[in-house]
């Protein structure tokens, strides 16, 4: 058996750039549903939806990475439902879903330190095909539980609440 790792990617657009995530992470692609907002949540957390019986948060990757901070949500808005390594179901809002690509994960270019909208620690690498360049996201890093909590923590959370009880 060969040791190269061929993976299928689902590619999509955030602004003008093309990004990809491994297809085995993707559970469903849906149009923007009725989202229940979570009070006081970070601006990139649009709220929660019911996804196959699970309460799944909807995260707008465009807002999360400052690609578009004032996006419009309508019936053409696309959500990619992914399942993280630790089995959480999360919906990602993207601009448009493009295509499937076969990628040899061993032959990626390393993510550049500068230039991309998304910090290298959230990337698996770059993949070039003809003229196209696809940035492969490390979805488990982006959606890491602690990372998300760190980014959305409220200062009061840490305060003692013993006396109030």
């Amino acid at each position: 058996m060969s040791t190269t790792q061929i993976n299928q990617l689902l590619t999509f657009k955030l602004g003008n750039e093309t990004y990809g995530i491994e297809i085995n992470k993707v559970r469903e692609i849906l149009t923007y549903p009725v989202v229940t907002p979570i009070p006081d949540a970070s601006c990139w957390v649009k709220g929660v939806i019911n996804l196959r019986g699970e309460v799944a948060p909807i995260i707008d990757l465009r807002v999360r990475f400052n690609i578009n901070t004032q996006p419009v949500y309508n019936e053409r808005t696309i959500v990619i439902a992914v399942r993280t390594q630790d089995a959480r179901m999360i919906g990602l809002v993207v601009d448009e879903v493009s295509d499937m690509e076969n990628v040899d994960l061993d032959k990626l270019y390393p993510a550049p330190d500068m230039g991309a909208s998304i910090a290298p620690k959230y990337l698996k690498g770059l993949f070039k095909k003809e003229e196209k360049m696809i940035v492969i996201l490390d979805i488990d890093k982006i959606l890491d539980k602690e990372e998300m909590q760190r980014l959305s923590r409220h200062p009061q959370e840490a305060a003692s609440h013993v006396l109030a009880a």
Binding site: V34, P39, A41, S42, V45, G47, V55, Q149, E157
Partner: peptide
């Protein structure tokens, strides 16, 4: 809390009759 712990004053969620989430 599988996904978030930061929602102040929100303890859980439920799926409503119309399929949306209630907090």
């Amino acid at each position: 809390d599988k996904n978030f712990r930061n929602a102040q004053g929100i303890g859980g969620a439920t799926v409503r009759g119309d399929g949306t989430i209630g907090l």
